[in-house]
Simulated scan of single mutants.
Amino acid sequence: MSQYTATTLTITSNNQTSYAYRRFGKTGTIPVVFLQHFRGNIDNWDPALVDDIAAEREVILFDNSGVGRSTGTTPQTITEMARGALGFIDALGLTTVDLLGFSLGGFIAQEVVLLRPHLVRRLILAGTGPEGGRDMHGWKDDIRSHAIKDVQGAEDIYYLFFAQTQNSQAKGQEFVGRIFTRTEDRDETPSLATRDAQDEAIIRWGIPNMGKLARLAGITQPTLVANGNNDIMVPTVNSYLLAGHIPNAELIIYPDANHGFLFQYPHEFAGEVNRFLNKA
């Protein structure tokens, strides 16, 4: 099985939400549940990253409530998105998971751990930041013009996720090629209503409040924090804040990289993820 070929399945939770998901990789391991970025769906996960992790761990990719092929309505708060993720995990009958949250998914992952600390064994926070962090209260106009465009194209991915250097942009083109290689059983593009709800939730999360950093002491799980050295969507300083306030955290910063560092360095980051998750 691979991100290129895994079948898209559905499961219905107690709240009658039907969640779309893919589950594959090394069976008999603690599954890694992936939490996706703003406007992303299952097919926006890089096969190069996911398949490398799946070689050593079972991976679960899913659409949260109202996203892609999942039913229901997309919530307007991170806490309710976390409850949606918990509804999905509960529907699968999982009692122990590892979480990998990217961007918006990293906000949700933090809330999942704080709401259900006994569920999560290890946590990976990629290209994300704490509630009330620095320069997170809405995007600058140039970033926003790409992020909320009704119909996005490859040029928006290159701008938002990759540094404005020849090497990074070339890696961006490779990434776009990978995520559009799959042609059968593709996920549905998230709706504009989902975009608007997620946008509101992100803005609320980013209201400046350094007092909110105290909440991070509640995340006692081993945590891997990673980012590019010049993230324009969730400024890199916020990764330092996470690593500094989560009691058992380690930090990796990738050079010449923007928000999508994990897609620019998919094999390298997957190797770090596997190393981190395979620790005793």
Rank of each mutant, 00 (worst) to 15 (best):
I11V: 15
I11Q: 11
T12V: 14
T12P: 09
S13I: 02
S13K: 10
S13E: 07
N14M: 13
N14S: 15
N14R: 15
N15V: 12
N15G: 12
N15W: 07
N15R: 15
N15F: 07
Q16C: 10
Q16N: 15
Q16L: 15
Q16I: 03
T17Y: 00
T17C: 14
T17P: 10
T17G: 10
T17E: 06
T17L: 07
S18D: 13
S18R: 15
Y19Q: 12
Y19K: 11
A20V: 04
A20F: 01
A20L: 07
Y21L: 00
Y21G: 02
R22M: 09
R22D: 09
R22G: 01
R22S: 09
R22A: 10
R23D: 06
R23T: 06
R23K: 14
R23E: 14
F24M: 04
F24E: 01
G25V: 11
G25K: 11
G25T: 05
K26F: 09
K26D: 03
T27A: 13
T27F: 11
T27Y: 03
T27N: 05
G28H: 05
G28R: 08
T29Q: 12
T29N: 07
T29V: 04
I30W: 03
I30Q: 10
P31N: 11
V32S: 02
V33D: 14
V33R: 12
F34E: 05
F34T: 09
F34C: 04
F34N: 04
L35F: 00
L35E: 11
Q36I: 07
Q36N: 14
Q36R: 06
Q36W: 00
Q36L: 00
Q36V: 08
H37F: 13
H37K: 03
H37N: 13
H37W: 14
H37G: 13
F38W: 03
F38M: 05
F38L: 00
F38H: 11
R39Y: 05
R39H: 12
G40Y: 13
G40R: 08
N41V: 05
I42C: 01
I42L: 11
I42S: 01
I42K: 06
I42W: 01
D43V: 09
N44Y: 14
W45T: 01
W45K: 11
W45R: 03
W45M: 02
D46V: 05
D46S: 15
D46W: 08
P47C: 04
P47K: 00
A48Y: 00
A48E: 11
L49S: 01
L49C: 12
L49K: 08
L49A: 01
